[in-house]
Design a protein around this nucleic acid. Structure first.
Length: 492
RNA sequence: GGUCACGUGGCCGAGUGGUUAGGCAGAGGUCUGCAAAACCUUGUACGGCGGUUCGAAUCCGUUCGUGACCUCCA
């Protein structure tokens, strides 16, 4: 059986394509990061985990990856309040803090949450505010090429002029005429020649705190500028992969393409565009503006009316990986709890696998074929649900060998171990959680003592005593699990 | 209104023109002093209606339903 080539779905071509880096063995990948004006919620975990899998798998394949994920800390305009406020600045005024203090605080908290989800940090995490010069240069380049115009200190992208020369809407499948008919009329757009035009540089209102001097005005760059400027700076005029949530396809990524092509003679900036689908709750997108989001901090702590219990970071990670990244995933307590049980089963098998002994000259299972199945699964546009199904097949083999119902020869056992570990830990990034309580020395010692006492009672067939201990522990949410080699315990 | 997705068994969720997805729950069993845990086995399915085909849940048409984007959003 042949292993299939690694393919990924390219939003630009609407097809799965074989992945071929522009400059192997190097791979440049850029993913839109968070706007740091609030805590990360479950929705933010999806792209972080999706592209973490991609990052990990590319490394597993031996590529030298430069992964860039930005921090947006300027330039988002809000329309839910007085128009023209910068989100960051608005929150700063509200809480009487320096804007950069807000940025730092939420950046720290974002890192904390992502670390808990076992999401590897990118190689470069550039801040938009640290790349104002680069963004201004890009604005100037677009002006020079004739695809932008200045009005009252602001600079706008001329979509009409661009659409005459290049296909506008190639990523989102929109066309220019249609956009003109359907773009909603928003306040503060009188300066634009056309409703479809978007800001490259925005003159700051007097009350606007975050501002930079430029030849056009004291102001700030338009939202789409940062990704174009920073992607170009760190990955080049043309790089391999650009990722983000589906909701960013239009207008953000479409505008990015337009900006980059306008500044660079029509050169496509990105070879593969990848987009993860949304997390929904009761079938509706989880989002800031809808107010139906659950922050990751609350998920981990069980701190929400929507939650029946706390869900561990790895539980959440596994839950997401059981769905394909391009499918919507609906949040529910049942699904999270089901995932938790499955995850435990998988990780227990991983533990068992380490102790397994090769015990035969011939194997009862075709480990080579199984390995090929694993690679074919992930090579098919990161199909983690299929990969996980394959891993559960391995769980069956592992448990059967462990129980003496199946046999493996030395080579196959080694292959099973290395492949299983590589996928579970390196690629999927799952890890056994060490409960803080459980690692506490005092509790550890006390539990040992208690279980020893119970063990003695059991040896003497003193069932009332042994059951009393078990019941008392159960009241404390500690479950005792009796095995052949003694008893184990777990806090539930 | 425009553009684009999706509709799978009790739940979550893959996939596919003919061959077991997987997980959870349920059922049966093994183990155990009992229980729990663990492990093994296992049933139920592809929104409705037409069409193409030897054969469709899978392709086409149509209809109903849901969602996303068109505005900041992961």
């Amino acid at each position: 059986m042949e292993t299939q080539a690694f393919t990924i779905y390219n939003t630009l071509t609407r097809k799965k394509e074989v992945f071929e880096p522009i400059n192997p063995p190097h791979v440049g990948m850029y993913v839109c990061g968070p706007t740091v004006y609030g805590d990360a919620h479950l929705g933010h975990a999806r792209p972080a985990i999706t592209f973490d899998i991609l990052f990990r798998y590319l490394q597993h394949l031996g590529y030298k990856v430069r992964y860039v994920r930005n921090i947006t800390d300027v330039g988002h305009l809000v329309n839910d309040a007085d128009h023209g406020d910068d989100k960051i600045a608005k929150k700063a005024l509200l809480e009487q803090l320096e804007p950069m203090e807000i940025v730092q605080m939420y950046t720290n908290r974002y890192h904390r949450d992502m670390d808990m989800l076992n999401v590897q940090r990118p190689n470069i995490e550039p801040h938009a505010s640290g790349h104002i010069i680069e963004q201004m240069e890009l604005v100037q380049k677009i002006l020079d090429s004739g695809f932008a115009y200045e009005k009252n200190g602001s600079v706008y992208f001329n979509v009409k002029a661009y659409a005459e020369k290049f296909p506008y809407g190639e990523l989102s499948g929109r066309n220019y005429e249609e956009l003109l008919e359907n773009t909603r009329t928003l306040a503060g757009q009188e300066e634009k020649q056309n409703s479809a035009d978007f800001a490259l540089w925005k003159k700051a209102a007097p009350e606007h705190i975050m501002r930079w001097p430029s030849k056009w005005s004291d102001g700030f760059p338009g939202w789409h500028m940062e990704c174009s400027a920073m992607g170009k700076k760190y990955l080049g005029e043309r790089f391999d992969i650009h990722g983000g949530g589906m909701d960013l396809i239009f207008p953000h990524h479409e505008s990015e393409i337009a900006q980059s092509k306008a500044a660079n003679n029509g050169q496509e900036p990105v070879k593969y565009w990848m987009h993860n689908n949304m997390i929904t709750i009761n079938g509706q997108k989880m989002g800031k503006s809808l107010g139906n989001f659950i922050t990751l901090e609350d998920m981990f702590a069980g701190n929400s009316e929507l939650l029946e219990k706390a869900y561990s970071p790895i539980n959440i990670r596994f839950f997401m990986l059981q769905a394909h990244y391009r499918s919507p995933l609906d949040f529910s307590n049942e699904a999270l709890q089901a995932a938790d049980k499955g995850l435990k089963k998988l990780l227990n098998a991983a533990e068992t696998l380490q102790t397994l002994q090769a015990n035969a000259a011939e194997s009862d299972a075709d480990i080579e074929a199984w390995k090929t199945n694993c690679y074919n699964a992930i090579n098919d546009d990161l199909n983690t649900p299929i990969l996980i199904a394959q891993l559960f097949d391995a769980v069956k083999i592992i448990n059967s060998v462990s129980e003496g119902k199946m046999q493996l020869k030395e080579d196959d056992l080694k292959l099973l171990q290395s492949t299983f570990n590589a996928f579970v830990f390196d690629v999927l990034g799952l890890e056994k959680e060490i409960s803080d309580n459980k690692s506490d020395h005092l509790i550890q010692g006390l539990m040992e003592l208690v279980l020893d006492m119970r063990m003695n009672a059991r040896k003497n067939k003193d069932w009332p005593a042994s059951d009393a201990i078990r019941n008392k522990l159960k009241e404390l949410n500690i479950t005792v699990k009796d095995g052949k080699e003694g008893s184990n315990w777990e806090i539930s």
